[in-house]
Amino acid sequence: MEDLFNYIGNNMEMIYFLVLAILLGVEVISNVPAILHTPLMSGANAIHGVVVVGAIIVMLQASPDNYLALSVGFLAVIVGTLNVIGGFVVTDRMLEMFKKKPKKS
């Protein structure tokens, strides 16, 4: 137990960060109209694709002869990129349709 508290104590800055970011996330989104739920979910989906940065760091830290790490990391970079690129492109396609209307009508 003592170690657990020490761990928390040593990472207090991070924990503040965590709590504030959670509240920020709630605040940012709470007034969204229902019509935007789908694009918003899709956009948020693209944002958590930032996990690909972690995959890149893994690859940069792996030693060049650690083939297991390299191949798993390679896969991680691919799927992470899929998440980012796919997410943003799909969201843009959805929102593009919202935008087209005012001109036409």
Partner: peptide, 14 residues
């Protein structure tokens, strides 16, 4: 951290 937590909490609210 920011990207992840933001989506984690905003996603829960959504």
């Amino acid at each position: 951290l920011t990207g992840g937590i933001l989506v984690g909490s905003a996603g829960t609210i959504l």
